[in-house]
Nucleic acid binder design. Structure first.
Lengths: 198, 198
DNA sequence: CCTTTTTTGTTTCGACTCGCTACAGTAGTG
DNA sequence: CACTACTGTAGCGAGTCGAAACAAAAAAGG
């Protein structure tokens, strides 16, 4: 190994972009399998997002912020996934404007062929300590970049300052609702990093 | 800070994709300045690539591999940049098929407004040791992913096994040519990691 | 030398992305 | 009741993307 070079931010940025791009490309598709299951990068990102976001965040608007795009573009992507039968639309209980998306059975099945799985596997091969260090560093970078871009930071409720856990039950002060254990690991738009409020 | 979570490969992959996407978006453009200098993500990537690649790698084909796309698509992106006056085309000295791209003065000027600068700044703020660790880890991930995707790995000659440095001068065994000091840090298509050939 | 084969680059096509603008409907405010 | 803010959609034009077809040059093999 010969990696005691300066490792400037440039190189790191290039690596991140390259990883992201290569990770999302379908790559060599296997021999068998249906060839028609080719979603675009944006569609995959949307499908992944709606599968991992909690009920407060499964809206086209929230996805548009997560994907750093406009609501119009996000709306088209969502529509295409609904047409494909991978997402289903549901009316919001109280807010008449809002629609909440759900990943259908076919959507979950599709997610098993996520081209990004390979990137995940590669990252999974890193030593746990290294992975934790990288996660911490990149988390910091995400927070900094989001702030300078005036973009929201996404994160799970388990690390959110809005969330309060007492005796097994968790309560979110932002949405004023109780959270199930499963929801604690889901992605939320209203995420606020867990810092000491000074 | 509260970052002693498991940090699975999923989360890492999501962070990488998010960083890449947010880092390439133009973000809030300032108050002044010409509003017309908006290149697309692919165009920025191409401009950056040709500014950093050595003379053996400044071809549309090499860029298409770097960008993990087809030669056809890369050809279009290059053409658009030539039309904008940011790249200039030059015939290859010996190979009649090949064209070598050069970043024009206007191209270099444009690169000073690279939207990815902010991502670089954010990464630059990391502690050097952390940055080195992240670079090593991501470099490993890039190599692994590229191998499983059958994609070439890009790197600089200073870390390439083709390169041999003796008494101040560097020689590349792959292209059979002498390399200047400046070229040693440039990106090359024919990069081969510097491992012990066992 | 001549004939494949490979490499390089381009063009065209159709589907999709993207940012933008305009728009309709709902929610919250005063 | 305005008035503002927010959510979602539709259409436009430029660009991206992969695929296929193509021309030209280089390389390989006889």
């Amino acid at each position: 190994m010969s990696t005691d070079i300066s490792a400037s931010g440039s190189d790191l940025a290039d690596m991140i972009v390259y990883l992201s791009r290569l990770g999302q490309s379908p790559g060599r598709l296997g021999i068998g399998a249906a060839p028609a299951q080719n979603l675009t990068a944006a569609q995959w990102t949307a499908l992944r997002y709606f599968a991992r976001a909690n009920r407060f965040s499964r809206t086209p608007s929230a996805f548009s912020e997560f994907h750093a795009t406009t609501r119009g573009t996000a709306s088209q992507t969502v529509k295409s996934l609904v047409t494909l039968g991978l997402l289903s639309r549901q009316m919001h209980e109280t807010d008449g404007r809002s629609t909440v998306m759900e990943v259908t059975e076919a959507g979950h099945e599709m997610l098993r062929h996520d081209p990004m799985a390979e990137l995940r596997n590669v990252l999974e091969k890193l030593a746990p300590a290294v992975r934790a260090a990288v996660a911490q560093a990149l988390g910091q970078a995400v927070a900094d970049l989001a702030q300078s871009r005036n973009a929201p930071v996404f994160g799970s409720c388990s690390e959110c300052s809005h969330c309060q856990t007492d005796a097994g039950t968790s309560y979110c002060h932002c949405t004023q609702s109780l959270l199930s254990l499963r929801e604690m690991d889901a992605i939320c738009v209203d995420f606020q990093p867990n810092r000491n409020p000074a």
